[in-house]
Design a protein around this nucleic acid. Structure first.
Lengths: 118, 118
DNA sequence: CTGTATCCTCGCTGATACTG
DNA sequence: CAGTATCAGCGAGGATACAG
């Protein structure tokens, strides 16, 4: 069954959806679209994220095999994050969501205004 | 700029992503793929959701114009939820995410096991 | 059947400061 | 530069019971 899984609370598919649903993971994937990025670069690109939360997100994604963390033995230290093939494959569906959001944001905001009357 | 928006914390696009990122909204969209459904039917389809949270989710999605809520003046009461055209358009990207999750769940789980050594 | 009301907890988040 | 440490707070989410 192709879709039955997602509705089972104990199915791992739920865990994936939770991870993808994470606010920051989506933005990290989008930020790494065009190649490896360093920590501070990511932090600056993604507005409003604190270092702690960004680290948590990156560690979780590394743990799931979505990206790699490469440390360069330099002074000052340099760390680069890069999507794995698995992470790259996730890029397409996430981009689809992002595109939808940007295309339909006005319609959603309009709907919100309409229902504001009640 | 096509993607700059999503990285701005104050941009409405963020709000959309938050809504889509919501664990239950995604499952509701999937549940309504094949037409209108009643409250209890949704609750049974989506495992592990409490009535309160399901109501909250449905109200929020209605508020955003993603679905309609139709009350039939009957006894016992009957309420049907159905995706609007806007909600239907969201179906495709969400399905893409769900498909990705099901296709790659094993690879992610494998990656998690690997990193468990550390 | 379709919710609402109430209470509670727990975990994420943010702020801030500090380290290798 | 790239994080870690620590703490506080709040609010989403869950359990349970009840109502129209």
């Amino acid at each position: 069954m192709l879709h039955g899984d997602a509705f089972d609370p104990d199915c791992p598919t739920r865990l994936i959806l939770d991870r993808i649903g994470d606010k920051w993971s989506v933005l990290v994937v989008l930020s790494l679209r065009e190649g490896p990025r360093r920590f501070t670069r990511l932090r600056d690109t993604i507005g409003g994220v604190t270092p702690k939360v960004l680290t948590q997100t990156l560690r979780a994604m590394e743990h799931d095999g979505l990206l790699t963390r490469r440390v360069f033995p330099e002074v000052p230290p340099r760390v680069e994050y890069e999507l794995t093939p698995l992470g790259l494959s996730l890029q397409r569906p996430i981009q689809a969501i992002a595109d939808w959001a940007e295309e339909n944001v006005h319609e959603v905001m309009a709907a919100r205004s309409t229902h504001e009357q009640s």
